[in-house]
Design a protein around this nucleic acid. Structure first.
Lengths: 259, 259
DNA sequence: GTAATAGTGTCTTTCAGACATTATTGC
DNA sequence: GCAATAATGTCTGAAAGACACTATTAC
């Protein structure tokens, strides 16, 4: 009656099994538009897509060839989809050790003409400064960063339009309701740098107003003022530096805030 | 060069594929403790688990037999995991048309001794009043509702301890940061009924203090006061009724609230 | 000085938090 | 009247929101 006994009798072929399990990854970065000295940063959210090759290694036409898609690949039996996503990120960008998070599963019948393919989708936050040595791999003919507006005009493979839409929702909620913004910023940052990151996903007046945000940042329990430390990255006037404090996630009930 | 040509050349067996794709569902309900007339409701969050049969239909010992587990089953090739979860919910409780949501994927190698099994996990919110005609199905010898405290002391199958922990986190965040509480409540409700639901997952003083919550509920943009409509369900004094207003999700940035 | 960004002063209004008080009704 | 729940009155303090103003520095 042990699990071992039970296992011997179990027929793993009893059910139809999927034809594949893949891991896709939406790699987001935030780029500074027109970086000038002593200038307030203006940032832009971008997503990395690859152009699927028209033909595969054997010269045959590729599925959904010539369309843009999220990087991804088949998950191996000895790894999780999250590990596969990190491997894919490493292959596409050479970057390791950044924020990677699951946000959805795509399993609609017929979503992939090759068969019953389950896709586990993730997003990654890669700071601009880590994206120096991007390289294309053999499966992709082109790799490019697009703004969300540009993506609206691209031909996308499979159901990647849906997946990307959800990825943007997921990263928006994460940037605003967790301290995920820290993954786009250097370890110490000014109020205007944090503000620029948040402005890519919100128009909340508390965040967009300079005096309001400059005051507010000092009272946030998950951000620490670094007394005496300043920078002139963003202004001629030396500017106060801050850093994020490690803290378990902050849940503010919608029933207890001001409207 | 069309997708059809490409498909002919594609060998679907090139990669090892999973041995199964299952959909599990954490069925939550909130029960009123000691329901008396004219009494303020006190509620309790409960989760439905099934006891896996010691032996299967052929009399052989069952995998992880005699342990408690989330209801679930294999996803068919012609459906999504969400559809499978709703089917499973219907089989376990006879309930249809309630809130069912994906919250995670479990794919750690070795998590299931039967092979490489991917589990797509969901949770459902079922109002107490819909749970009149619960029935066990043939795969389960027992079905029971447990409090979260009771679950800590049960022997759970596979990695369901992890899955349940994440399900509780997911429903907590959803109850507090979306209007999901409406799925536990009748269409119109008093402040103390909503309060009782929220108290199952939070101790926030704005919610637990009666005068504070009674005032606050009137200023929430997603809740509407029903002028002139009252009930004596919860008190001898007729009590104001409210209802949820349909509204796209409210994201309150952690950077714009009070601490 | 000028321009740009950072940051403060100050006023008004609103709301949270606390606690007492009143209102309503079945028993 | 008593007990229980609902709801309001009222005070204090803190923070939001708005806008003017000062501070600092490269040029």
């Amino acid at each position: 009656m042990t699990n071992e006994d039970a296992l011997k009798k179990y027929d793993v072929k009893k059910y139809r099994t999927p034809d594949g399990y893949t891991s896709d990854i939406a790699i987001f970065t935030i780029m500074t538009k027109e970086a000038e000295s002593y200038k307030k940063p203006v940032m832009e959210l971008k997503l990395m897509l690859i152009k699927r090759a028209a033909t595969n290694a054997e010269g045959h036409p590729n599925i959904e060839g010539d369309k843009w898609a999220l990087p991804g690949g088949f998950v191996q039996a000895n790894e999780t989809a999250l590990q596969a996503a990190k491997r894919e990120l490493q292959e596409e960008t050479g970057v390791q050790g950044v924020h990677v998070k699951h946000f959805g599963v795509y399993d609609r019948p017929g979503r992939d003409p090759r068969g019953w393919i389950i896709t586990n989708a993730h997003y990654a936050i890669v700071p601009e400064r880590h994206l120096m040595h991007r390289q294309a791999n053999d499966d992709a003919s082109e790799v490019e960063l697009f703004t969300l507006e540009e993506i609206n005009h691209l031909a996308l493979a499979f159901d990647h339009e849906d997946i990307i839409k959800h990825a943007v929702q997921a990263i928006t909620a994460d940037l605003l309701q967790t301290t995920a913004a820290k993954n786009f910023l250097p370890p110490t940052f000014t109020y205007s740098e944090l503000q620029a990151v948040l402005r890519t996903v919100t128009n909340d007046p508390v965040i967009t107003s300079d005096p309001a945000f400059s005051r507010k940042i000092k009272s946030l329990p998950f951000i620490e003022k670094l007394d005496g430390q300043t920078t002139t990255r963003t202004s001629k006037q030396p500017t106060q530096l801050f850093r994020f404090v490690e803290m378990e996630d902050i849940i503010k009930p919608i029933y207890s805030v001001k409207y």
